[in-house]
């Protein structure tokens, strides 16, 4: 008898949870979205495509951490890093770096601990988990909705975090969003500008 009562109780709790969840979904302003999943297919992007990257209308001033291309290490290996294959529709390292020079906003969507250990210079920290917090809202307010934004995480097929962040930013009206196909490690390994200082993160 006790066993039957317990099972009935479990079902009642699950049922109440479901009803509460339905009610929650009705009062929530924004619908929950799942966005796209990271693609594992990789396509090298021809160098000509870099010309398609437009300079943003509204630019932050990234000059303090900016490095000139002439200061970067040169050579075949370096070029190979910049043009390494990325999933379809994502930016190569070369394209992303060009956009960084042009003043695009960069958003780091990895774990907070990974961001604290090092991130692309001037990149803000914003993920699906932090976007609805006070800090996340403050970061979003510092980025105009029509600004050019590049989102990055670990890169490759482990880049769901960037896709999730992009999907939510689209909900908030951001129109010019790109994802860097390679991860932060590739950016740092290529000798491109990085930062450890969290305060520097917001463009």
């Amino acid at each position: 008898m006790k066993c039957v009562q317990t099972i009935a109780g479990v079902l009642a709790i699950v049922g109440l949870g479901y009803i509460a969840g339905v009610g929650h979904s009705l009062v929530r302003e924004l619908p929950v979205i799942l966005g796209a999943s990271a693609s594992t297919s990789t396509q090298p992007v021809p160098e000509d495509d870099i010309s398609e990257v437009d300079a943003p209308d509204l630019q932050p001033d990234p000059t303090p951490a900016q490095v000139d291309d002439s200061e970067l290490p040169m050579g075949g290996d370096f070029d190979a890093r910049l043009d390494a294959a990325v999933p379809d529709g994502m930016l190569t390292l070369r394209q992303a770096h060009q956009m960084w020079i042009d003043g695009a906003y960069f958003i780091d969507s990895r774990l907070q601990s990974e961001y604290d250990e090092g991130h692309i210079s001037l990149a803000a920290y914003l993920t699906a988990a932090t976007m609805f917090t006070d800090e996340g809202e403050a970061e979003m307010q510092s980025i105009p909705p029509d600004a050019q934004v590049v989102i990055y995480c670990l890169g490759g097929d482990e880049c769901d975090a960037s896709l999730n962040t992009k999907a939510i930013l689209e909900q908030f009206g951001y129109t010019d969003l790109s994802i860097m196909g390679v991860g932060y490690d590739e950016w740092a390994a290529a000798g491109l500008p990085t930062s450890l200082n969290e305060e520097e993160g917001s463009p």
């Binding site: 317990t6 709790i13 109440l16 949870g17 479901y18 509460a20 969840g21």
Partner: peptide, 21 residues
């Protein structure tokens, strides 16, 4: 659903109501 099931089960456990369920 899952967070609300967690919430209801947690509250019931703290109160000691329907404890086994």
């Amino acid at each position: 659903t899952m967070p609300w099931v967690e919430m209801i089960a947690g509250v019931l456990l703290v109160l000691g109501l329907w404890t086994r369920a």
